[in-house]
Design a protein around this nucleic acid. Structure first.
Lengths: 347, 347
DNA sequence: GAATCGTTTGTAAGCGCTTACATTCGAATT
DNA sequence: AATTCGAATGTAAGCGCTTACAAACGATTC
């Protein structure tokens, strides 16, 4: 087996420069301590050998990594990508490096990734949502690694969180829908298993219905995976299995766009024949025709705030708390009053 | 300062289980070597203490990390996200962990991230495009870390690559546009600085024009940042500064959608008044109205193939080579023949 | 010129883990 | 019961780095 000629070490540099390893280490970590002349000697040696400190050894000796880990359900979803980018930019400015892993919406993989990042020395973790494998919290505690939950707000949860109130926001949106006169409402939701955001959004719909005296129990609802196509299929099924629906509330914008596409394919006009709403307010929401009524989520703001807060926690400058960000309703073309029923008025 | 009670070590577990550290190490790495009874003892101790191996120490002692690093220009871009997700899934199946960092399209940050990932022990690296800071290649060589370039194909480049031929694909697309009868063509390109994909795509346009005997030198072209809004602004400027343009070739789908949106805002119909094309064939391309004519890129396929190839290289089973994937043209509604000029026919 | 003192540099002890090698153990065999 | 031998376990030497402490060095001062 061809041994890969091992990378230069501190020791190699020290020899080449004719100084001790301690001096080289100082050159890396606090060059101002060195004389101009030694500094130059070491610099030359470092450059000549192309030396880079071995992170593992460094961490082991020094105990801090300046690394933050983040585990998101998927990278394919524009929603997380956006906030994460902001998160990473903020971290970078503060001298931290971000390590990202994804869980594919599976709690078992998430746990695996958490362990992986922690053993890699992450000083802190960013997680999405409160629902996860049991034992994870205890693990984080014994490892002494703080974690912050984002994309959802829950003052009662064990871990600190930063985000918006999914339930309340959805309720507010549905109240707008009801105010327009809609009474027969259907829901397309993302898979609610192990996804508290999806669960909360559905609850928000029920809250609004119940408050308006409607039947929140028998809410027509289809659960599906993430994707435009999935949204389209779900829409078709929802309309086939339920008559008279005048408004479709979707768990996110992508599903909503799928629903709108399919509506058109079925010869239904949006919003004249059926209204559609989304959640997240991704860029797509304003590109489609008609533009999507949705809940606006401050992704980038959430990302950078999360970074600042997590750094504070990691550096022991504050204990985590729950921070709620506003998620406001964006009323746009995809929502309009239902047309007066031409046939039998229900009830 | 409240000392964070340090995490349990191999030694702690060994003591708790009443065995040697070597035994605990074996429990972690090759449990089949242990007696059923010792295995049980150790297991109990591990669980009780919530032990997780320290990655740094482990790497230092064992030399292999089973980690692959990837540095992409941005996470916000659906294009990379898609392929990267596939990349990571494939890695996971082969027992590798993916570490992602982003460079914000800046070569200096990319270099920093490369160093960071290498010092973290990445066994191999996935990079985007061939253009990067000088010295990086030498650095990777002295560190003995192999790298694979994706999202572009270049048999002549120093690093192995997997992707498609941006130039050839764009040329093919523009040839279709010319075949339809368009002669006055404008280009909206992503920033070409430090982005060989963008450069190559522009070259592809020029190739096609030159081959058709058109003036490739004075090609109307606007360079802009990534984003729908940016595309819209660029479209406006392009149309303002150049008359008679009948087709706008965009460097990617997002810019193309921005252009289409703006066209509509300016009262131009697509494709009747102006044709628009994109590149990448992201989901958005089929959602907009009319659907976008574009170049289809096999993102997921590229991602998983890249993973397999990089693993091969890392494990010494093959030397890297350049692999070209097909990127095919998707003709859709946004491209149509130009309407016969009502005014003066140029020339 | 000797004593003093702040600076720069060197020495060496770990950090938590893997693993070559040594040791011990427990059948199986004689 | 003595011998043998493979399997299970223990011992201890690093891996590359940081850092407390010691040593050496100049520059001042007396």
């Amino acid at each position: 087996m061809p041994e890969k000629s091992s990378a230069p070490t501190l020791n190699d540099v020290a020899q080449a420069a004719g100084v001790s390893t301690a001096t080289v280490s100082r050159f890396i970590n606090s060059p101002e301590q060195l004389t101009e002349s030694t500094r130059k000697k070491v610099k030359i040696a470092v450059n000549k050998l192309g030396y880079t400190p071995n992170f593992g050894a460094r961490v082991m000796a020094a105990k801090r990594t300046n690394t933050i880990g983040a585990i998101i359900p998927t990278m394919e979803n524009a929603i997380f990508a956006r906030g994460l980018q902001a998160f990473q930019e903020e971290l970078r400015q503060n001298g931290y490096t971000l390590l990202v892993a994804s869980s594919s919406y599976r709690t078992d993989i998430e746990e695996e990734q958490i362990r992986s990042l922690v053993s890699r020395g992450a000083d802190g973790l960013l997680l999405i949502g409160h629902e996860r494998a049991p034992g994870v919290r205890r693990f984080l505690e014994t490892q002494g690694v703080p974690a912050l939950v984002a994309w959802t707000y829950d003052a009662a949860a064990a871990l600190p969180s930063i985000g918006f109130d999914n339930r309340k926001s959805m309720r507010a949106l549905v109240e707008e829908v009801l105010k327009m006169g809609h009474r027969r409402i259907g829901v397309i939701s993302a898979a609610t298993k192990a996804n508290d955001r999806a669960q909360l959004r559905v609850l928000g719909v029920r809250d609004a219905m119940a408050a308006a005296g409607l039947d929140a129990e028998n809410l027509p609802i289809v659960e599906t995976t993430y994707g435009v196509d999935a949204g389209a299929l779900a829409f078709e099924r929802l309309m086939r299995e339920n008559e008279w629906l005048t408004a479709i509330i979707c768990g996110n914008d992508v599903l909503a766009v799928g629903a709108m596409t399919q509506a058109r394919a079925l010869g239904l006009r949006v919003p004249e024949d059926v209204s559609v709403t989304g959640f997240d307010d991704i860029e797509l929401a304003t590109i489609v025709e008609p533009a999507l009524t949705t809940v606006h989520v401050p992704h980038r703001d959430m990302g950078s705030k999360a970074a600042r807060m997590l750094i504070q926690i990691v550096e022991g400058k504050c204990r985590g708390k729950a921070v709620e960000l506003d998620a406001s309703i964006r009323l746009r073309g995809s929502l309009a009053p239902p047309k007066p029923p031409t046939g039998l008025k229900p009830e």
